[in-house]
C-alpha cells in the first residue's frame, strides 16, 4: 500500500515538475485536477510497466502442449525405437515380440501426455486454438510429411528385398516418429520466430 502511495506521489510530482496540466476545465477545484493528474501520470507509469509491452510473451497453452508432446514422443517412442532396434539387430524375426512393446509405449505415451497437459493446465489456463495456431499446425504438417513418404518408399524397398515384417513395420514406425518430431520442431520454431 505504501509503495502504491509512493508511486502515486512520485508520478504526481514528476508530472507537476514537467508542467503538465490535466485536460478539462481550468476552473475545476484543485483537488479534482490533482486526482486527474495522478491518474494520467500513473496510467503513463503503468504503460511502462505493463507486462504485454515486453518483447517476450509467456508461452501459450498450445505451445506448451507441443513441448509436452515432443518430450513425450522423444522419451517414450525414442525409447521404444532404441529397444526395438536392439531386438532387430539381435534377431530380426517375427513381429510378435514387438506388439506388447508397442502397446506399452502407446499406453505410456498417453499417460505422459495426460499428466503433462494436466500440469500445463494448472500453470496456464487452457485456451482454444486460434487461426495462427491452426496455420502453424497445417504448415508444419505439410513441411514434415515428406519424412513419412520417404519411410513408406524405404519400406517398399525393404519389401522388395524380402526383409522381415518386423524390419518393415519398424521402419514405418521410425518414419512416423521422425515426421512427427520434425512437425513439432517446426511448430515451435514458428511460435518463437513467427512467419
Amino acid at each position: 500500500m505504501s509503495i502504491l502511495h509512493h508511486g502515486f506521489g512520485v508520478a504526481s510530482a514528476l508530472a507537476s515538475s514537467r508542467g503538465e496540466e490535466a485536460d478539462g476545465d481550468p476552473d475545476e477545484p484543485p483537488h479534482r485536477m490533482s486526482t486527474k493528474l495522478d491518474k494520467l501520470a500513473v496510467s503513463g507509469m503503468f504503460d511502462i510497466m505493463k507486462p504485454d509491452e515486453h518483447p517476450t510473451v509467456e508461452n501459450s497453452f498450445e505451445e506448451k502442449s507441443i513441448w509436452i508432446q515432443l518430450a513425450a514422443m522423444l522419451l517414450v517412442f525414442g525409447g521404444y525405437l532404441i529397444v526395438a532396434g536392439t531386438m532387430l539387430v539381435r534377431d530380426a524375426g517375427a513381429i510378435g515380440p514387438f506388439i506388447p512393446l508397442l502397446i506399452a509405449a502407446t499406453v505410456l505415451m498417453i499417460v505422459v501426455n495426460v499428466a503433462g497437459h494436466a500440469v500445463a493446465a494448472v500453470m496456464t489456463s487452457p485456451e482454444d486454438c486460434d487461426e495462427r495456431d491452426r496455420l502453424i499446425s497445417w504448415r508444419s504438417e505439410a513441411r514434415s510429411a515428406w519424412m513419412l513418404g520417404a519411410g513408406v518408399i524405404i519400406a517398399i524397398g525393404c519389401l522388395a528385398l524380402s526383409m522381415t515384417p518386423a524390419w518393415i513395420a519398424n521402419i514405418l514406425l521410425l518414419s512416423m516418429f521422425l515426421s512427427q518430431v520434425i512437425c513439432y520442431a517446426l511448430q515451435l520454431v514458428s511460435y518463437r520466430r513467427g512467419f
Partner: peptide, 24 residues
Amino acid sequence: TQQQLADRIGVTRQTVNAIEGEKY
C-alpha cells in the same frame, strides 16, 4: 491490454503480440 484486445477479437494474447510485432 493485449489480453483485452485478444478477448474481443477472439484470438490468443500471443497472436495479438505476434500481429503487433509484425511477425504474423
